[in-house]
């Protein structure tokens, strides 16, 4: 099974450090736990949908004792023509309640590299990185490694409505003005997790050109979630739109709602994600259109009943 995840390349370079365990997802996880026990930092690479078979292994053999295993869950989100059995729809919602886990989803190849680099730094514990099938979005995936602060999101790139630098760091946006502070106040914040952030970025650019005040955050981490961002948008924005390529129950949208409820904040929250039924086969473009996660649908959801 090395070829599907492109581990055949690594197998050639480092034959002694690459283990093909066959079709045995539970074993892959528990075996990784054993390696970690002896001080190794295994990267355990499984298709997201197949990792469902290893759910208990992740809890019992890795998370419980904080074994430093990095899970690289391939084919997260809708995979396309392999259909209902193969969509990586449940990983975010299924893994979020498990203590000790860090759960990350990169927006693009550079982020993926930074996350993989970050995940193997000392003391990081069990670390899940889930990423989609297919090709990346960047012209050149190469970049120097950078450590990403765990649990910190970012202003999505090239999405500054105002210019300037955010107190949230890293971006090129002013701190959001207070609600109702007049002209230029950000009314809508879109929080995305994973590769759909690229679609959101495009939509947000269009909306800004149309004069709408929209902020866009790439959350990067589902767990721990960036509460600074949630606090800021919860106290500043009238509407929050969450966008993720996992099931709508239990993922990013749910986490945002929980935060708002727990902190007595009452923005309007619109959640976009995969529906509560099994999505069949088709090309990814067709399917994301079908489930209302393509650019027009996301745009529609952001501006619908616009403030």
């Amino acid at each position: 099974m090395a070829t599907g995840c492109s581990l055949n390349i690594m197998m050639k370079e480092m034959p002694e450090r690459t283990f093909d365990v066959g079709i045995a997802e539970g074993h892959a996880v528990t075996f990784s736990g054993g390696l970690a026990k002896e001080g190794m930092i295994p990267f355990c690479n499984i298709y997201s949908s197949f990792a469902q078979r290893a759910f208990d292994n992740i809890i019992h053999d890795v998370a419980l004792c904080k074994q430093h295993v990095v899970f690289c869950l391939d084919r997260a989100g809708l995979v396309g023509q392999d259909g209902a059995t193969h969509h990586g729809a449940f990983d975010l919602a299924a893994l979020r309640p498990i203590p000790n886990l860090t759960i990350a989803s990169p927006m693009d190849e550079h982020e993926l590299r930074h996350m993989m680099y970050t995940a193997q730094l000392p003391g990081k514990g069990p670390f899940v990185i889930r990423y989609p099938r297919g090709r990346g979005v960047l012209a050149d995936w190469r970049c120097p490694f950078e450590e990403i602060p765990v649990g910190k999101g970012r202003i999505a790139p090239s999405c500054s409505p105002f210019g300037g630098v955010s107190k949230l760091g890293g971006g090129d946006i002013e701190a959001l003005p207070q609600r109702g502070s007049g002209e230029g106040a950000v009314l809508i914040a879109v929080l995305s997790l994973g590769p759909l952030g690229n679609v959101v970025a495009k939509v947000v650019r269009e909306l800004r050109e149309e004069g709408l005040s929209v902020a866009h955050y790439d959350m990067r981490f589902l767990k721990p979630i960036d509460e600074d961002i949630l606090h800021e948008v919860g106290t500043t924005c009238r509407r929050i739109v969450t966008v993720e390529d996992g099931v709508i129950q239990g993922g990013l949208g749910s986490a945002v709602l929980e935060y708002m409820a727990d902190h007595n904040l009452h923005p309007e929250v619109i959640r976009l994600g995969l529906p509560d039924h099994f999505v069949e086969h088709g090309t990814p473009d067709e399917l994301y259109h079908l489930v209302g996660l393509d650019a027009p649908a996301i745009k529609q959801a952001i501006v619908h009943s616009s403030l």
Binding site: T30, F31, G34, L35, K37, G39, P42, H60, D61
Partner: peptide, 18 residues
């Protein structure tokens, strides 16, 4: 970690291979 059945061979194999 102990409690759920059948994990010992996989876990011990990880340690042995390491």
């Amino acid at each position: 970690a102990c409690g759920h059945a059948s994990n010992s061979i996989s876990a011990a194999l990880g340690m042995a291979v390491a």
